[in-house]
């Protein structure tokens, strides 16, 4: 264990821990926009700078490992002043359209601007201005809002192993884009969307469906493959408007395109909403009572005439354990047959 002090507070952490992680373990907040615990430290936003006694320039806490007896200060006036300058610089090249931004209320940049009180900005000048939209169906890429934190580039390479995007151009013109600035064409897992701190990357389906403050979050499990990813449904007025995933899930917050973007079937107008009974080859709407009575009488007659084994049941790999349990109990205890299966084999 390495012993050091942060803001005078003694902290002990394992060797190799960064100052940032050490501070967070002691519940000392340090602002950052480019850090993600699952990605390679980047040191791009420079907001996590701290003072270390004996080092004559600020160091980025996200990239600097702790050392024995290190004395770290996280909020000196000089450090806070530099952080404010950095925020002013970022905001001097950022559209001021929080009023219509999908990310408002859930935006790391907005949050920092608020806490650092950046209303006046000493810097003005040219802003990046991009014509043309990425026409991929899933991800809105508003690169004017991009702060070049590089999280999307790293998550795409380091987690997804795809490398669909990287930084192109230099200096002020640096821009994150797919090769040759074509439309994004990738696995559309949306990992990049999940790590973007600003409104630069959002789901196209999110647009004008409600912002964070109106949204109820419900943690549940993805309905698709067998990975069992934990997902969070964002619900507004009985409609799922967005899907995300928390870092503490077994999927570590990562999802696939179906899990992240394949939720709109829930609200599909094609959903069955009333029982149907077929008469002369055509379905007609029926009440529950009528439908149930018909099933009870039909099954009862068949069981009586041919025995319970003339009836079979197929359960569903998309229903819950409880439902499947009830269904096999129904087949076995009520109908009286073991003709019960599901599609595990397919």
């Amino acid at each position: 264990m390495i012993h050091l002090t942060i803001n005078g507070l003694p902290v002990s952490v394992p060797e190799g821990t960064t100052i940032l992680d050490a501070a967070r373990s002691a519940d000392i907040p340090i602002p950052t926009l480019c850090h993600h615990p699952k990605l390679t430290p980047y040191g791009g936003c420079r907001l996590c700078i701290v003072e270390v006694k004996g080092i004559n320039r600020p160091v980025t806490s996200c990239t600097t490992p702790v050392a024995a007896d290190m004395e770290v200060a996280t909020t000196t006036p000089a450090i806070e002043g530099m952080r404010k300058t950095i925020l002013e610089l970022i905001l001097s090249d950022h559209p001021n359209d929080c009023m219509v931004c999908e990310k408002a209320g859930d935006c790391a940049l907005q949050e920092l601007a608020y806490f650092y009180g950046v209303r006046e900005n000493r810097f003005d000048g040219e802003r990046r201005c991009y014509a043309g939209k990425d026409r991929n169906p899933f991800i809105d890429r508003d690169m004017e809002k991009c702060i070049l934190c590089g999280k999307c580039v790293r998550v795409c390479e380091e987690v997804q192993g795809v490398g669909a995007i990287d930084i192109a151009y230099r200096g002020f013109n640096a821009k994150i884009c797919p090769p040759f600035e074509k439309d994004l064409s990738c696995e559309f897992c949306g990992q990049c969307v999940s790590v973007c701190p600003t409104g630069a990357l959002t789901g196209k389906a999110w647009t004008q469906r409600g912002r964070q403050k109106d949204i109820k979050e419900v943690d549940t499990i993805c309905p698709y493959c067998g990975c069992g990813c934990g997902i969070t449904l964002h619900v507004r007025r009985n409609e799922i408007v967005r899907v995300s995933s928390r870092e503490e899930t077994i999927n570590e917050g990562w999802l696939c395109p179906k899990g992240r973007f394949g939720y709109t079937f829930v609200n599909s107008p094609e959903r069955l909403h009333v029982p149907l009974i077929k008469e002369k080859g055509v379905f007609r709407e029926a009440g529950w009572d009528e439908a149930m009575s018909l099933i009870v009488s039909k099954l009862g007659k068949i069981k009586k005439k041919y025995g319970p084994d003339a009836i079979g049941g197929l359960a569903s790999a998309r229903c819950t354990n409880e439902e499947n349990y009830l269904f096999q109990k129904f087949m076995r205890a009520v109908i009286g047959t073991n003709n019960i299966d599901h599609c595990a084999r397919l």
């Binding site: 099954l299 068949i302 009836i311 079979g312 197929l314 569903s316 229903c319 269904f327 599609c343």
Partner: peptide, 10 residues
């Protein structure tokens, strides 16, 4: 041989 089938979500 099988006369009736109840399919739940398949």
């Amino acid at each position: 041989d099988l006369k009736a089938l109840y399919i739940m979500g398949e």
